[in-house]
Amino acid sequence: MKSVIMDSTAIERALKRIAHEIIEKHTSVPVSLIGIRTAGVFIASRLAEYIGQFGRIPVQTAILDITLYRDDAAKGAGRAIVRATEIHFSVDNTFIILVDDVLFTGRTVRAAMDAVIDLGRPKVIQLAVLVDRGHRELPIKADYTGKNIPTMDDDQIKVVLTESGSKEDAVYVIRKGD
């Protein structure tokens, strides 16, 4: 069973609200958004646009590929293509906001933090996500959340965005059974 839990308007509203919160809370410029491949990258660039519009403050974005930092290599990571990490600013002493679409177990975020820390020593790392679906397996919590969605742990959350070729933005829950 597949049901829409956020349509394009809801997504837009959520991201704009996050943008405002970031403008409020940020303590240094430029705001450094690092999107986690793949959907996190699109969300980061949307946030950058909103922050630029609303806050008139400088924003820089970067792309993080965390494939080589996943903790499930034991299960094998072989086939996944490793794409480039494109961070063209120094992370040393920088106020960084990691951006992803869905926060679930927290393992992706853990990997992303390790990846960023291998690049230098950031001043702060914060986390912004479009959806928090619960079921954390690590002590990780988002600083900015678009929407909290209670789920069963075998539900699937699907975020589709126009950047990856879909007609409209949407977030779905796909529930097994019934």
Partner: peptide
């Protein structure tokens, strides 16, 4: 590095959603 990485393990696409 790439050769070793691709050779070890069975591999699957990564999803954490």
């Amino acid at each position: 590095m790439s050769a070793i990485y691709h050779t070890i393990g069975e591999g699957h696409e990564y999803t954490d959603n």
